[in-house]
Amino acid sequence: MLQSMKHLEEFTAENVYISALDPETFQFNPQLKSLTIGQTDLSDLLPELFEPIPNLQVLDLSESQIKSLEFLTQVNLPALRCLKLRDNEITVINETIFQSLPALTHLDLENNPFTCDCSNAGFIQWVRSNNQTQVVNGHQYTCSFPVAEQGSKLLDFDIQSCWMDVSFLCFISSSCITLVTLLTSFIYHFLRSQIAYTFHLFLAFLYESRRRKKGAPHQYDAFISYNIHDEAWICREMLPVLEGEQGWKLCLHHRDFQPGKPIIENITDAIYGSRKTICVITRRYLQSEWCSREIQMASFRLLDEQKDVLILIFLEDIPAHQLSPYYRMRKLLKKRSYLSWPQAGQHTGVFWQNVRRALEAGGAATETTHLLTGPAAR
């Protein structure tokens, strides 16, 4: 019937169809300007139906069980000026749909079960601010959902809480992700060993706290912190006297560290498992990363326990100006006495007696009480 009506401009069919029209229904009616289809189930309406009729100016799909207007985003109706969708089942409308209808001046959406929440915020704002399209009785549209908003006016819904600057949020999110990525990379590349050291220091602190509560004895009398280049002096001079003659039980890197265990764990176990820590200091000792960590950890223990747990022995005479880069060492020397091997000269027996006195001492350490007392300690 429609195939022969090539100049048809107006078509109305109410209560005629029982389902959505075939997409090719109007393929022979390119001049159609007004289309009315009502009292029909158009819930499955396809946008292809409107492809042959781009000159359509009036479209009335009232009482057609339409639930969504998404089909309008895929149609090409540049001349459509009047759109009627009364008495349908439309709950949410995306305002961007109307961008595909540049000539629209009349919109009728009465008696639709609108949802009054942020999903309709864009449409509500469009109705309030749009100057081209007249929304028929828009101020009378009522809410059906949610239950708490039933009966209230759609345009009265407060949309201020729904607005969010998406671009700003994306900027903040991307900036945070970038910052976290850079920070993580920096920490992993430059600070991972320091973080591991701090972690093991914390574990050692917990271990020592538990040990003190239980009253458990230390495994060693002293841990010897030294640079590998000074190992010959340790074996030739220190061990025969402190272990051989005086009978102290010492902990040394090369002999007592557990093979296969991370070095930082061996260091923390040695320092906190010994009553004292003896630091044998030379220029190379000060330049060593691991020696620096050993004296740092021993200083932390000194601060925590407030006892004489640190003994300083200088194998070389190091001028004060050469100690200026080593803040921790300078700070210790301002508060604590130390032993000097070069100053001992021929009186090594007195030197080792002072070491013995230091190992035997167990009192609290204060800024006015030196680790080694008496002129021989200087």
Results as ranks from 00 to 15, higher is better:
Leu8Tyr: 01
Tyr17Trp: 09
Ser19Tyr: 12
Ser34Asp: 12
Ser34Gln: 10
Leu35Ser: 04
Leu35Val: 08
Thr40Leu: 07
Ser43Arg: 02
Pro47Asn: 09
Leu49Lys: 04
Phe50Ser: 09
Glu51Leu: 09
Pro54Ile: 02
Leu56Asp: 00
Leu61Asp: 00
Ser64Leu: 04
Gln74Gly: 00
Gln74Phe: 00
Asn76Met: 03
Asn76Asp: 08
Leu77Lys: 03
Ala79Thr: 14
Lys84Ser: 15
Glu89Gln: 12
Thr91Asp: 05
Val92Leu: 05
Ile93Asp: 03
Glu95Ser: 13
Ile97Arg: 01
Phe98Ser: 01
Ser100Arg: 12
Leu101Asp: 08
Ala103His: 09
Thr105Tyr: 02
Glu110Thr: 07
Cys116Pro: 10
Cys116His: 03
Ala121Glu: 01
Asn131Phe: 04
Gln132Glu: 08
Val135Tyr: 06
Val136Asp: 11
Asn137Val: 14
Asn137Thr: 12
Gly138Phe: 09
His139Met: 10
Tyr141Gly: 05
Thr142Gly: 01
Cys143Glu: 08
Cys143Leu: 09
Ser144Glu: 11
Phe145Val: 14
Phe145Glu: 15
Pro146Ser: 07
Ala148Asn: 12
Ala148Gln: 10
Glu149Leu: 14
Ser152Gly: 13
Leu154Cys: 12
Asp158Trp: 02
Ile159His: 00
Ser161Leu: 05
Trp163Glu: 10
Asp165Lys: 06
Phe168Val: 12
Cys170Glu: 14
Phe171Ser: 15
Thr178Asp: 04
Phe190Thr: 15
Ser193His: 15
Tyr197Pro: 10
Thr198Tyr: 09
Thr198Gln: 11
Leu201His: 11
Leu206Ala: 14
Tyr207Val: 15
Glu208Gln: 10
Gly215Val: 07
His218Gly: 00
Ile224Thr: 07
His229Pro: 09
Ala232His: 08
Ala232Gly: 11
Trp233Tyr: 01
Met238Pro: 07
Leu239Glu: 12
Leu242Val: 12
Glu245Asn: 13
Glu245Leu: 11
Glu245Ile: 15
Gly247Pro: 05
Trp248Phe: 15
Lys249Ala: 05
Leu250Tyr: 06
Cys251Leu: 05
His253Asn: 15
Arg255Val: 06
Gln258Phe: 07
Gln258Cys: 10
Pro259Leu: 06
Pro259Val: 07
Lys261Met: 12
Pro262Leu: 04
Glu265Asn: 12
Ser274Thr: 02
Ile278Cys: 00
Trp290Leu: 14
Arg293Asn: 13
Ala298Tyr: 01
Ser299Cys: 11
Ser299Phe: 02
Arg301His: 02
Leu303Ile: 15
Asp304Ser: 06
Lys307Gly: 05
Ile311Glu: 01
Ile311Pro: 02
Ile313Asn: 03
Phe314Asp: 10
Leu315Ser: 07
Pro325Asp: 12
Arg328Val: 14
Leu332Asn: 04
Leu333Ser: 06
Lys334Trp: 05
Ser337Pro: 08
Ser340Tyr: 02
Trp341Gln: 10
Phe351Ala: 07
Trp352Ala: 02
Ala358Arg: 04
Leu359Gln: 01
Leu359Glu: 00
Glu360Lys: 12
Ala365Leu: 08
Ala365Asn: 14
Leu372Trp: 01
Pro375Tyr: 03
Pro375Ala: 13
Ala376Gln: 13
Arg378Tyr: 12
